[in-house]
């Protein structure tokens, strides 16, 4: 398997650039990501009364539908690294009248601040590919730990196809040349989730203007810890 490229940018810098980006993010990136994101939310299928965690909620576009799904008896927890993004999200939740169903924290998914077995479901959309290569299995292991037995995880991410397109190759080149501007890169999503000990239930591939995204839906086995 071809190697996935590394992330050169330190986290402090990543956080600062997301703070700056937050106001423009929805207009530029949000639209492109909408379809795979919505497909991912449908796979996760959050129910009334459930406890759901979204890692890297960004400008909060998925927190809103998640909060509607869990209802008044459920709760959505959102974790992100960027305080700038968080400001935009707080505004959106207030406007939608959903603040009470959502709790937000700043934090790093490599070290999740929740006890074992806390959540029914975890969602990540275009987030896992932002972590440096050695951190990806750490993030997934933390997710498994924080999920209840039988819990669900859905990850939407840019994936490395079997035969990369010209655009995918150009994108990866840009990521290597300008790591501060092009911060994510395609990864092997399914393999990473499987290696972290999840049971894969469904994999859907969609094309994002020539780049490939994968929606991986998996379960934590009832017997695993």
């Amino acid at each position: 398997m071809e190697e996935i490229s590394r992330v050169a940018r330190p986290k402090e810098k990543a956080r600062a650039s997301y703070d700056k980006l937050s106001r423009w993010y929805d207009i530029v990136v949000g639209r492109m990501e909408k379809r795979p994101r919505d497909l991912g939310l449908a796979k996760l299928d959050a129910h009334e009364g459930e406890k759901v965690l979204e890692i890297g909620f960004g400008t909060g576009n998925c927190l809103l539908p998640l909060a509607r799904s869990v209802g008044d008896s459920g709760k959505v927890y959102g974790l992100d690294m960027s305080a700038g993004m968080l400001g935009v999200t707080v505004g959106k939740l207030e406007k939608a009248g959903l603040s009470k169903r959502v709790e937000l924290q700043l934090g790093d998914a490599v070290n999740l601040p929740y006890p074992d077995g806390s959540f029914d479901a975890i969602f990540m959309s275009f987030v896992l590919e932002l972590f440096d290569t050695p951190e990806i299995p750490l993030v997934l292991r933390q997710c498994r730990r924080a999920l209840k037995a039988g819990g669900r995880i859905c990850i939407v991410a840019m994936s490395k196809g079997k035969s990369p397109t010209m655009l995918a190759m150009a994108y990866e080149w840009a990521h290597r040349m300008f790591p501060n501007y092009i911060d994510c890169r395609p990864i092997y999503v399914r393999e990473a989730v499987e290696n972290a000990g999840f049971k894969i239930a469904d994999v859907t591939r969609v094309s994002l203007w020539g780049l490939s995204a994968e929606i991986v839906f998996a379960n934590k086995l009832e017997t695993s810890t």
Partner: peptide
């Protein structure tokens, strides 16, 4: 911060209750 949130948060380093 809400009681509910306080109940679920642990130290990210050692996973002990805060």
């Amino acid at each position: 911060i809400s009681k509910e949130l306080l109940e679920i948060l642990v130290c990210p380093a050692c996973k002990t209750k805060v």
